[in-house]
Simulated scan of single mutants.
Amino acid sequence: MDHISGGTDRTGAPAAEPAPTGATRPARPRGGRRFAALVVCLGLVVLLLLVSLGTGARGVPLDTVGRVLLHDDGSPEAIIVRQLRLPRTALAVTVGAALALAGVVMQAITRNPLAEPGIVGVNSGASFAVVTAIAAFHVTSVSGYIWFAFAGAVLAALLVYALTSGATRSNHHTRLVLAGAALSASLGACTGILTMFDSSAFDSYRFWVVGSLENRGTEALTAAVPFVLVGIVVALVLGPSLNALALGDEAGAALGLRVPWVRAAGFVSIMLLCGAATAAAGPIGFVGLVVPHVLRLLLGPDLRWLLAFALPGGAILLLVSDIAGRVIAPPGEIEVGIVTAFIGAPALLWLVVRRREVTA
């Protein structure tokens, strides 16, 4: 596994990494330029919000979008924008920001740049809970099984954490990966058995498992937002502590860091962010893996900035994916989980190849 390297200054921020011999790294923005870049990212999110509200089977001009947002005149455009597309767009921002932020935290506490939120069993736990709700309790609506999905995600994450709580510092990261993989495989097998013997459960489950923002409604958004907000606060507060943890458990403890508490708090933020996002939109891959990679390439290893940029970064990726899914195959659309896979897989391959070239 690759580890985040570099020392820290007195503020807890990792020192700049020296450029490897024979390779050049892109210049990374510092100080005021990083803040300006963050403002630009937030502005891009706002622009994509407006584009998302105007994009679909029936296009709405941007000036009309702005007008009906400020004043509901009861026109067909106002109904489309305010009642149909606004909740969907807000959910895209919420889910994208949550998954990207969880990815940064996950890679920080495992010190593995290839780690992603699904490694703690969140996706498999939510999937199994949804299938159980459909098969055993005949729940078929999104509003009905969102709470089952969140409960399954939380319970799976807690079980993985319990299995790794007794591990030593030297093998904690390996044990976390193995426990998450084993639990995901077990729950995936159970999910497959249920869907194989219950065709109605499979018919309902297959529309959720691909990851989609369509027809989620405001209930999914309102149910997810409180948990996401708490997870965001916890993750941002942990920024300086995660910088120290990136040096290693022993070095962090020498700096006065309470390593088990920091790791537990990071795990709680991942559980809240991923659990709520997966429950609301279904399993959506690559957001929590690709966004932290790109941000680390552009900004360096300082986790305080990575956490801040992950919020608009994840929102941008999911908004672009959702918009693309609506314009690729009109008048129908492609689910956002499929689009993120098409975007994320080549991007991840490029990042892996580039990382190999730089470190060679």
Rank of each mutant, 00 (worst) to 15 (best):
E335M: 09
Q107I: 09
T110I: 04
L257V: 14
V68L: 11
L299C: 13
W261D: 00
D72Q: 09
A92P: 01
T359R: 12
D73I: 05
V327D: 00
V225M: 07
L47P: 04
A360V: 13
A57T: 08
I146Q: 11
F267P: 01
H293V: 12
D302A: 02
A15I: 13
L163N: 02
F137Y: 12
R88S: 01
R169S: 15
A157T: 13
L176P: 11
G66D: 03
G180P: 02
A27T: 10
M106E: 00
G6A: 10
S184Q: 09
L99M: 10
L295N: 11
L295D: 10
P113M: 03
V45S: 01
L69V: 15
R10K: 05
M271V: 15
E333M: 00
C190I: 11
V336M: 08
L187M: 14
A92V: 01
R355I: 00
C274W: 04
P14F: 07
V336G: 03
V237T: 07
G332M: 09
N171L: 13
R206C: 02
A115E: 01
L319H: 14
V291I: 13
G188F: 06
T359G: 00
S186V: 15
N215R: 11
D72H: 10
S52E: 14
P346S: 03
L42A: 14
G282V: 13
V259M: 08
V46L: 14
T174P: 00
F309C: 09
M106I: 05
C274N: 06
